[in-house]
Simulated scan of single mutants.
Amino acid sequence: MSGNVIDPQSRGARQRTRQLAISEAVMAEGSVRIEQLAERFDISLMTVHRDLDELEDRGLLRKSRGVATATSTALVESSDVYRSNRQLAEKELIAHAALEFIEPGQAIMLDDSTTTLHLVPHLHTKTPLTVITNTLTIMNELRGARGIEMVGLGGEYFNWCSAFMGRTTVKEIAELRADLFVMSTSAIVDDISFHQRPETVDVKRAMFESSSRRLLLADSTKFTRRALHGMLPLVDFDAVIVDPGTAADDVSRLREKGINVIVARKSAGSRT
């Protein structure tokens, strides 16, 4: 990192990309010998064991007797490792559109979504800011960033999403007031945001209630997915930002309900 610009190709980002590739290789083949993974990705056995240990902690696979075996659960799609390299171009477009809602001097809450994570490298353009988050990945990315005061929320740590959640986290959120809350969702069903995990729902609802304005970031795939736990109706958000691939029928329906839908567009300065 130079100056106050967050380097998107940080060591952590490279590690997440490699772990995603490893997890996808194991899921595609069902099981793979650990020595083969080391050879395929040109990394040491120590490194591949460390990556596999983290992936096992997130519930993505099992490691036993020199073999990595895929796990088939809903936790796979919830994991930050799985989500981090999905719809990258769309998430970057959405993040640039969301940036327009952030003003210097604000206190902003950021959830644990990988879409929101795409905002982080651009926050230096809006300083001074106070960033409130329960996400360890964001805390690490913003550590030492000039002009950004960071408030880290504590609680029970959930490795699968690199975030703190639970009763303590919700209590801390209730004692704060932010100007803006930026969040994403796992699925949109009947124009309501949904998530697979109830503890995530509790935290996002608390952040929503503690913020003056609320943004929902949702790429087009959210409209085709399903999840178990309902969170918040889209009509309750100040704006819902989607990518250009979102079906016109979905955009029209939401707007007819009075929802402020913003379709992110590629600009001359965009890197996507």
Rank of each mutant, 00 (worst) to 15 (best):
M1N: 15
N4R: 12
I6S: 00
I6L: 03
D7Y: 11
T17K: 10
Q19L: 07
A21P: 01
I22Q: 09
E24N: 12
A25Y: 04
M27F: 13
A28M: 12
G30E: 15
A38N: 01
E39I: 14
I43Y: 05
I43Q: 05
I43E: 10
S44K: 02
L45V: 11
R50L: 04
D53S: 06
D57G: 11
R65Q: 12
V67N: 07
A70K: 03
T71E: 09
S72H: 15
A74M: 07
S78A: 12
D80S: 13
D80A: 13
Y82P: 01
R83E: 13
S84F: 05
L88W: 14
E90M: 14
E92R: 10
E100R: 14
E100N: 08
F101T: 05
G105A: 01
Q106H: 03
M109C: 13
L110N: 00
D112C: 15
T114I: 01
T116R: 03
L117T: 13
T127F: 02
M139A: 10
N140F: 03
A145K: 15
R146P: 08
V151G: 02
L153P: 06
G154D: 11
F164Y: 14
F164G: 01
G166Q: 04
R167P: 10
V170T: 15
I173S: 15
E175S: 11
L176A: 06
R177T: 14
R177C: 07
A178S: 14
D179S: 06
T185W: 06
S193V: 07
F194M: 12
F194D: 01
H195K: 13
T200L: 14
D202W: 09
A206T: 03
F208Y: 04
S210G: 09
S212D: 15
R213P: 00
T221D: 08
F223A: 06
T224N: 08
D250V: 11
D250K: 14
R255C: 11
I262E: 09
A268W: 12
